[in-house]
Design a binder for these strands. Structure first.
Lengths: 249, 249
DNA sequence: TATACTTAACATGTATACAACATACTACTT
DNA sequence: AAGTAGTATGTTGTATACATGTTAAGTATA
């Protein structure tokens, strides 16, 4: 009676990546712009302007904005609109603290599940990052550094984990934009290759230790001096005045 | 000249929790309904019906639906609408795998930062859960079990971590709804008190081991037999026919 | 009678219109 | 002249209308 229905049900696939929905495209463009620091923390993101830029209505923009807000890449204040998130020092510490815990804990599974293809892709990523660094393409380098951590986490074949780490890596880019000194990114390029060597050799413990040190190193390079939380940075304003001017009399 | 501006800037707080926006309310109601299994995996969630139920327009519902989709509590299929998510066996394993890694890794920080207030609230949560269990309030018990893990994670004072664990706890409720046998929830009520004792005594290692065992225990109680991924469960349909009916002739 | 095709009903995707809110500017009062 | 109040402008929040796509039912034909 309903035998044909059975065969009919399995055939409903493949029409998924045909027209990669516009939302995704806009989301990707905006998050990439934030990660690459083409948009700076604090920058306003008016819906009208974005709608015009992407040639869609505000509806589509709001959807993307809300998603970015959930991922803490933008901040939405009620009735006051969206702006690129400006993580507080505490938030910055939390992000790196979370990364230390999670990325280290994942190294076992990463080592256990690493395939030839994974390794090849990761080594390519390191090469790209190194080249970007060499050519002075800071923006590309930052993006590739985050991409490396995200891609590495995917080796563990645990989607919730790699998605979480991916988000933390994106947020880290924002943290570096606010508190990063120039050497925040400078050092870890060559480094990324090292952990691959350790993982290829099956040295789980050393890989975990390496990752902890790597993240600590980045975190230590952050400069939290001018408190951008709560009150504006009058301190740095007055400091600058004393530095630049000759005397005060 | 601009001295007054300085004092004026710090006063922009407190007007935040006044009218807890409707979105949040709807989000809370829906996620709670999903976690408490008043909505079952696979249930359709038509925008019109929800809009009428909450007395808002579809706009507000879509916002909530999209957020729930991002958190993997509902599934949105293009042009086909939203439904309560039905995690696959692989997804279920990933969720519990992630929880094992993350919640165990967090125990150190939990032990280090536990305060009197934390402990009091957590013990109260255990009491509530125990009572719900005793009174046969399964739904409440499930919700409280998830709440315990979420509240416990907050002790570590790392927002990204506790948010992630909170989401995983919610997803776990869905997993249990699909694959849980009756004793999936039965055992872990009294258990939750044990880890508090260990943490209060400062036994970090034992607490971590306990947590690993706890989550493994829940995961082992899941039943993945009837594959609800890909093809519908014809197997169980035919099995049922053989069980319920007398003969097949 | 079963299958395929057409059509109708329904649900979602998107844009637009309108209302509410915040901010900035201007005018008026002290 | 300075500060406050009122107004005007612009931006966000929400609902509704319209277009598009999917599902299901019904009919006609083989």
């Amino acid at each position: 009676m309903s035998r044909d229905n059975i065969t009919a049900m399995g055939n409903r696939r493949k029409g998924k990546s045909r027209d990669t929905r516009r939302d995704e495209e806009i989301y990707r463009a905006m998050s990439e712009a934030i990660v690459e620091h083409r948009l700076s923390p604090g920058d306003r993101l008016p819906e009208d302007a974005l709608a015009e830029a992407f040639d869609v209505s505000r509806t589509g923009i709001r959807k993307v904005l809300q998603r970015l807000a959930l991922e803490r890449l933008v901040t939405i204040q009620a009735n006051r609109g969206a702006s690129v998130a400006r993580p507080s020092p505490g938030e910055a510490r939390d992000v790196f603290g979370a990364r230390r815990m999670v990325e280290c804990a994942l190294m076992d599974a990463v080592a256990d599940n690493m395939t030839e293809e994974d390794l090849a892709e990761l080594r390519q990523l390191v090469r790209d990052e190194r080249q970007a660094q060499a050519e002075g393409e800071q923006r590309q380098a930052i993006q590739l550094s985050a991409a490396f951590h995200t891609r590495l986490s995917r080796v563990a074949r645990n989607e919730p984990m790699s998605e979480f780490i991916g988000q933390l890596a994106l947020r880290s880019s924002l943290v570096i934009a606010v508190y990063g000194s120039t050497d925040s990114i400078g050092c870890d390029c060559g480094d990324h290759g090292e952990v691959l060597d350790l993982l290829e050799a099956g040295e789980k413990d050393k890989a975990r230790t390496w990752m902890a040190g790597h993240l600590e190193h980045i975190e230590r390079s952050l400069r939290f001096e001018s408190g951008s939380e709560g009150t504006p940075d009058f301190k740095s304003i007055f400091q600058r005045r004393a530095q630049s001017g000759a005397g005060d009399g």
